[in-house]
Design a protein around this nucleic acid. Sequence first.
DNA 1: AGAAAGTAGATTGTATACATATTGTAGATT
DNA 2: AATCTACAATATGTATACAATCTACTTTCT
Lengths: 232, 232
Amino acid sequence: MNKRNKDRLYADLKREILTLELEPGANLDETSLSAKYGISRTPLREVFRQLAGDGYIEIRDNRGTIVSPMNHKSMRDFFMTAPLVYASVSRLAAQNARSEQIRDLREVQANFRRAARSGSVEDLVFWNDRFHLAIGEIADNQYLMPSLRRLLIDHARIGQTFWRARNAEMRQRIETAADQHDRLIDAIEAGDEETAVALTLDHWALSRDHMEMFVRPDPLPIPSGFAAAEVE
Amino acid sequence: MNKRNKDRLYADLKREILTLELEPGANLDETSLSAKYGISRTPLREVFRQLAGDGYIEIRDNRGTIVSPMNHKSMRDFFMTAPLVYASVSRLAAQNARSEQIRDLREVQANFRRAARSGSVEDLVFWNDRFHLAIGEIADNQYLMPSLRRLLIDHARIGQTFWRARNAEMRQRIETAADQHDRLIDAIEAGDEETAVALTLDHWALSRDHMEMFVRPDPLPIPSGFAAAEVE
DNA sequence: AGAAAGTAGATTGTATACATATTGTAGATT
DNA sequence: AATCTACAATATGTATACAATCTACTTTCT
C-alpha cells in the first residue's frame, strides 16, 4: 500500500509549502525525501511533476527542484490579479451553488472558526485556503480554477503573518475575516451575486491592507549619524 | 540524447491535441507511445504528468490516460470566461510590452499571415495559438497565465472549424481576424490599454459568433410529416 | 437463463540499477 | 595569485524488471 505514502507526500509537501515550513526557493532533495516516505524516486518524481503543474514547485532540468520562489514582482502581480479572479469566482459561486455544497462550505468555515479560537496559525492558513478553494469548486469553472489555485498558494504564503495574531487589534482582524466568511456564505446561498462580489472585495481589502504592511513595512528609524545614507 | 525524443513527444502531443488529430477523450497508450518515440515508460509518464498539469490530458488512477474531454459544460464555461481573461491579458500586455517582445510578436503574426495565405488549417491553429500565447508572455503575470493556457487549449479545439475556410465569406473572416491581430499589436506597442481591450473583445466576438454556429448549428429543416416532433 | 464468482490477460504503478549531467575541489599553468 | 583544467563526488535522468490493479471472459451456482 505505497499509494498511501505517495498521497501523504503530496499532501505534506503542499501543506509545508503553504505554511512556509518549506521556504520559497528551498531545495527539495529526491533521495532523502524518497527515503523519508519509504517510496522510490520514480513515484516521488511523479509527485514533483504534479506539484510543478499546480504551481507549488519548480523543476529545473538537471538542476534540481525548488519550492516556487517569491519576489517583488510576484507580490505585485498577486495584488493586481487577485481581486479580479476572486470576485469572478464568487460571482459564479453565487450563480451555481447547490445546497449540499453550501453545507460543505459551512463545515469548512466551522473548522476555520475552531482554528481561530485555538489560535493555531497553521490551522488558520490551512482552513482559510480550504474555504476559498471550496468556493472555487462551487464556482465550478475549469478555466478560472487554475489561476485561483495559483493565487491561493501565494495568498497562504504572503498572508502568513496575517494570522499570527500578536495583539488585540490583530485578533479583531481575524474575527472580522471570519464574519465576512459567514456573510459571504449567506450571499452565495441566496444567489446574490452583487453582494457576494462586494463582500469578496471587502474581504480582500482587509487582507491586503494587512499584508502590505508586512511586505512594505514602515522603515526603521534612522540613527542621526546615518541620516544622509541611502535606504532602499 | 533521448532528451530530444522526450521533448518531441511533448511537443507532438500538444500539437496533435490542439489540432484535434487526437480527439478529446482519446486514450493514450503508454506502451505503444514509448515504443514509437524510442523512450522508456518512465520519462513518458513524466511527460504525461506535465501535460496533465497544463490541462491537455487527464491521468486517471490505474485507469489510463485520456485527452482532456470536452462537453457542453466546458463550452459554456469557455464562452463565459474567455473574454474576462483575454481582455485582462491584453491590458497587461499593453502596460508592459518591451520593444523586442513586439518584434517577436510581429514575427509570429507574419507566420500567421503565411498560414492564412497557404490555407493550412493546422498552421493557422498553431500560429493563432502562438500569437495569443505570446501576448500572454508579454503580459507576464504568473497568476493569469495558467487560466490563459487552459483557455487557449480549448480555443484551438473549439475554433478548429473557424479556420477551415470553405467559401469566400469564411476566407474574409480569417482576413478580418488577421487585421485585428495587426491592430492589436499596434495598440499594445503604443501602450494603449483601452484600445487593446476593445480590439480583444472585438476579436473575441468574431470568433465566438462563428464558433457558436458550429456548436449550436441551425436546426435541419423539419419534413412536414414530423412537424409536431420535439427537437432538442 | 441469469447472476455471481473466479481467472487469464493486459495495463498501470513501483523499485532498482545504470547512464548522464552538474558541481566542487585539487593540481597545473600562466 | 588567479585562472584553467581534470577528475571525483553528487544529483538527476532513463531503462528494465517486477508487482499490483483492472477488465473481460469463462465457469459455476441458483
